[in-house]
Amino acid sequence: MISSPDILLDVQHLSQQYALPKASLFAKAGHIQALNDVSFQLAAGKSMGVVGESGSGKSTLARLVMALEKPTQGKVMFKGQDLNALPQDALRRARSDFQMVFQDPYGSLDPRQKVLRIVSEPLSSTLNNPSGQALNAQALSPQDLKDRAAQALTEVGLRASDLDKYPHEFSGGQRQRIAIARALITRPSLIVADEPVSALDVSVQAQVLNLMMDLQERYGLSYLFVSHDLAVVNLMCDDVLVLQHGQLVEAGSADDIFLRPQHPYTQELLSANTGLSH
């Protein structure tokens, strides 16, 4: 397996099966092949878009890359480490280097926690960063945590005074900024974003997309960007994976996929999108 140094994420033959409930007491339980033999590589500082309809396996792929579940087959190699082979505490430490932004800014922030706690939690829960440098949460004083959180908020265009507020005091776009600040605070190399702007209005969506592009330039981040909106993926991503029923049906540079789609499913997606893009 070739693994050049600038390959950040190397996904090898990834498959995931979910068991279905038994239809009757004596029937054999069926299963669903949510993802079937998907492989790709993502270079540092680049963005990979994942498109497909609901049920195509987009979110399953995102969850597997985030090591939120174990695949039935295949490997997720992040910076040369097999995430699923890592022991619990090593994985926990490694997590500071890859973070996630979810679709629903109303459901992904704990309504009972203040922004300070929401944004600083990845810092305090990942204990040490992967380079071994002591970033122990106990060593980080409350003031340090607060400073880092304030800095993260400023980077996403919010104010340090927002740290003492609760999520309900913010609009949808601001909440998604808070979610991005939470992902950024550990200085990750990779952010997995699962439909990060789908729940936002057009004008707010533009602000958040611009912010994500700015942050990528500033920090050399990589995005694994899951979206059903091809125009957004075209804007944000260098390369694109097209999933259908858990299969990778087409992969290539964004230009190739959007200008010269080969697979009939990609062509269908594209024609559906051109009629409907926002």
């Binding site: 609009s171 004008s203 969506q205 997309l209 909106d229 125009a231 991503c237 051109t274 893009s277 926002h278």
Partner: peptide, 27 residues
């Protein structure tokens, strides 16, 4: 005009910043 300008469209060059409407929708 702001609404039309803010939407991403297929064919935009990668990394193009979208036009935004200054400020937020008032409560």
């Amino acid at each position: 005009q702001g609404l039309f300008a803010a939407r991403p469209q297929l064919g935009l060059k990668r990394g193009t910043r979208l036009q935004t409407i200054a400020g937020n929708v008032p409560e």
